[in-house]
Every structure is written in structure tokens, then in C-alpha cells.
Write a protein that binds this DNA or RNA. Structure first.
Lengths: 120, 120
DNA sequence: CGGTATCCATAATGATACTG
DNA sequence: CAGTATCATTATGGATACCG
């Protein structure tokens, strides 16, 4: 991780959740589900094994996700949100709402643009 | 923009604000300041001209930032937040707060880890 | 089952020089 | 002043094969 330009704390928060699949992983765990590696894969059919591993490791490092290994064969590993990770919910909710609103905003804008085209 | 995996709206929101300098640009404009290109540069000494241009154009495209050109020589261009862009404030605040808390959390964790090292 | 290891493609950012 | 253009570098993600 490089220096945070202008010490902006927003950037700190962003660093936690950016990554193509991170927000989705977080969302899946935020409701309290405890999921095994392959369960997560099934929830995100397009993610590669590699990326799932990488992102999970990062989230673990960041104390957002807890990894519990059962030393048995075949192996069993469970992932869950940490207590601290739950604090992300507020942020995620805010973003979810804004994201939804944004989709609508963009659709509205499209229509407006289409209309003004006609007028010209 | 690629397809949003699992239609997660959080991802939509993230797309608006990710980019190494985007959140900082947004922060500088969110308080209502109207800033010229080089004023923004001075506020972010490490950004390159190229990246500032690219990010500003994207933010304009996204209807977050308004660009006003005064057709004169030497040129004068002013950037400001749009009405719609202001709606980002809630999200940015949430992230800022969480980011700040996260910094503290990580410092705490470091100390704890250091302590348990001693105990062993 | 839950991963690693390699290698590769693309995207994001940076450095530098130039311009109306 | 406010950019473009070009080239180089790095970060991110994907494909595939293999492993304990």
C-alpha cells in the first residue's frame, strides 16, 4: 500500500473494500452467514479460485473476515465476518442506497438527453 | 464499464469514486468551492496533469462535477460540484468516519499483537 | 476441499514533452 | 492556463494446471 495522498480517510476506507469482488464477498458475509470456500464460489460463479483466495486473505489481514480452519481431511474452512467487520455495514448501506439512486438518476438523464435531441 | 457482478449496487457506487485521486477531488469540491484546474493541482501536488484531466472528465461524465469554460485567453476553466454530486456527501462522510475509526483500530491491533508477542 | 504456482492480458497510473 | 500526445511502468485480474 502506498502513502495515502493528502491523508484522506475516505481513501483508507476505500482501500478496504475495493477489489473487483471484495464488496460482494463482504455483502455475502455481512448478514452473519458462515460460508465455506466453495459455498462462496457458488455464490459468485464468475470469480476465479485465485481471486477468491486473494481477496479473502486481504480481508482477513484487514480484520474484516475471520478464517477458521478445521484440521481434517477433506479440509474444511469457514469464513465469517468479524465483529469489527460488522462496522462496515453502515458504509455499505450508504453506498448501496446511493448506488441504487444513481442508477435511477442515470436513467432519468438518458431520457432527458433523448428528449432534448428531439427538440433540436 | 464492465458488467456489475451480481448487480451489487455497492459496486455501482464504488465505480463513481474509485480512482486514485477521485475521492480527493470530490472532497475538495464537496464543500462548495469553485476551483480552477491549477488550483486543484496545487491542492494535490502529487497528481499529474494527465490524471487530473482524466478524473475530472470522468466525474463530469458521471454528472458529479460541472465544468465551466470561459472562452478567453489565457483560458479559464472552473470546476464545481453538481447538485447531484452533493448527494455523495452522505456516502463520503460515512466512509471518512469509518476510515478514521479503522486507522485507530489498526493501531490498537498492532499494540495488542506486540503485547502478546512479549507474553510468549 | 481448499487451496498454490505460473504465466498472461489488460487496466490504471505515471513521466515527459509539447500546444492553442 | 489548461490542457494533449506518447510512451513506460505497475497493479489488477484471469486462465490454467497442479497439490496435500
Amino acid at each position: 500500500m502506498k502513502k495515502n495522498p493528502e491523508q484522506c480517510q475516505v481513501v483508507v476506507a476505500l482501500d478496504m473494500i475495493v477489489g473487483k469482488w471484495k464488496p460482494i464477498i463482504i455483502q455475502h458475509l455481512l448478514n452473519g452467514d458462515v460460508l465455506r470456500f466453495n459455498e462462496l464460489r457458488r455464490l459468485m460463479p464468475d470469480i476465479t479460485q485465485r481471486m477468491l483466495t486473494l481477496h479473502l486473505r486481504e480481508l482477513e489481514e484487514q480484520d474484516i473476515v475471520q478464517r477458521k480452519v478445521y484440521p481434517q481431511i477433506p479440509p474444511k474452512v469457514e469464513y465469517s465476518i468479524t465483529e469489527y467487520g460488522k462496522s462496515l455495514e453502515t458504509v455499505m448501506d450508504a453506498m448501496h442506497e446511493w448506488g441504487a439512486a444513481h442508477v435511477e438518476h442515470m436513467e432519468m438523464k438518458k431520457k432527458e438527453d433523448a428528449l432534448s435531441e428531439k427538440e433540436i
